[in-house]
Amino acid sequence: MLNDALAELSAEERGATLELTVNNHPGVMSHICGLFSRRAYNLEGIVCLPQGDGATSRMWLRVNENAKLQQVMRQVEKLPDVLALVHHPAEHEIFSLVGRFTA
């Protein structure tokens, strides 16, 4: 049943999360967001926090799974300031936690 329901959702509507480890300095966010905006691909949500001593940050990007995602991921991986990229095929729980503030 669940699978059938998911299949009914178009690929456009399925949420996914990209989890990035990045250098923490001004401009990194701009580099990453630019890869989406110049492909007319909306970022549905962004959570970003410094980690450890603050030299790096963890970033979660909520996106809709579509045909552009793979190309954007490959472009993200090419950025010198991106140290790691993990693709979660579902929405990450951090967004439901943050979602409390918008409820």
Partner: peptide, 15 residues
């Protein structure tokens, strides 16, 4: 710095 993001492999604003 902002203007050159989409047309460079990488860019720096030296701080």
């Amino acid at each position: 710095y902002g203007l050159s993001i989409p047309i460079t492999k990488h860019n720096y604003l030296v701080r």
